[in-house]
Design a protein around this nucleic acid. Structure first.
Lengths: 203, 203
DNA sequence: ACCTGAACACCGTTCAAGT
DNA sequence: ACCTGAACACCGTTCAAGT
């Protein structure tokens, strides 16, 4: 009946003694955040859920901030995959690829509000997403940045500093995501069009 | 020597019994947030600072969330004033007025990170800044929205839904502010130009 | 190595009691 | 009306002690 689940749980629990408590802490934290929000993330609660003492997390993270940092990095890794996948599925046209990434960005924020908050929240300080950011955040940003460079090659994006264009797009879409303006696809498309016009070479 | 400060403090303290503890709680919270960040905002600490018991705030706010809500509203009131003042000081030219508001928006976020976080943070749910938002938030948004309408009248902004244009600009600038991309004025100006190009009527 | 319980210094919130 | 102290149920974190 519940044999499989039980044995999975048992082996999982035993496995903590083998060195993957760290991984389990991150996974369970992401799950808890998704279910109950960031405020519900508590070292004690996460310990309870993993049938582990409340101080066990300190074997793997120096403090709660370190756990949050790991959650953020895991979030950015997933985020980069999502953006890349959206871009690659959108065909060769620059407009379609950019729009697909914008939609994926906003959807990620909508579906993972907790992770999104940890990734971009007060604790972190990502700023320009290049120098000070984690390598995971940089990788996500690079997915967009490389697309902008391609857009410049095909004349869809004006000449000049590709980094500035990429930051501009990132900020625009990030604003949409942060203000949770994503339940109206007509508006999102409206923004995409205006954004592309803003990027295009001056006449 | 310290007589004036002392008597001011004394009359201030006595005044709490006269009904302005509520106001003092908000002011002191904003001050504390500015100094130490949102995480430092504690009902107990705020009570300490005002020489009042830790449960005194409950006479004026049902819980901590209600205090935060009041802080948010006060922040939006200030925010609206700042935006309006920036616009009015920028002369008659649309581009200058829009750029001035963008700069003021970003500067407000830079100078009041704590208030900004409370205003737009996880607790609140402002979304489109019109229907669900507080009247204070709506007022701030209206400063921008009315300017967009004027831009349409003078042909600087394309025809159609002025609300959509206003939301677009808000999201763009909000992204800059949220990602703390404000230490590079050259980049901010770059974004302003692209933004205005995106708003302009299609050819 | 990894885990545990007890303990410390904090919170938000409630409530009976004071003026 | 407005304020207070004690109390309750939580936290994050440290540390000596266990296997």
């Amino acid at each position: 009946m519940a044999g499989r689940a039980a044995s999975a749980r048992a082996s999982r629990k035993r496995a903590y003694h083998h060195g993957n408590l760290r991984e389990a802490l991150i996974e369970e934290s992401v799950e808890l955040i998704r279910e109950e929000g960031v405020r519900a993330l508590t070292l004690r609660e996460i310990g309870r859920r993993l049938h582990v003492s409340r101080t066990a997390p300190y074997r793997h993270f120096i403090d709660k901030a370190a756990l949050l940092s790991a959650i953020s990095k895991a979030g950015f890794t997933k985020f980069a995959e999502v953006l890349e996948q959206a871009r690659n599925s959108a065909g060769p046209d620059f407009a379609n690829r950019l729009d697909a990434m914008a939609r994926a960005y906003v959807r990620f924020a909508a579906e993972n509000p907790g992770s999104f908050e940890v990734m971009f929240g007060a604790g972190s300080e990502p700023q320009y997403l290049d120098e000070t950011a984690s390598v995971e955040a940089k990788r996500a940003f690079e997915v967009l940045h490389s697309e902008i460079r391609q857009g410049q090659d095909t004349g869809m994006v004006g000449p000049g500093d590709s980094l500035a264009y990429a930051r501009l797009v990132w900020a625009m879409v990030h604003g949409l995501a942060t203000l949770r303006m994503f339940d109206d696809t007509a508006f999102t498309d409206f923004c995409s069009r205006a954004l592309r016009r803003g990027l295009s070479p001056a006449l």
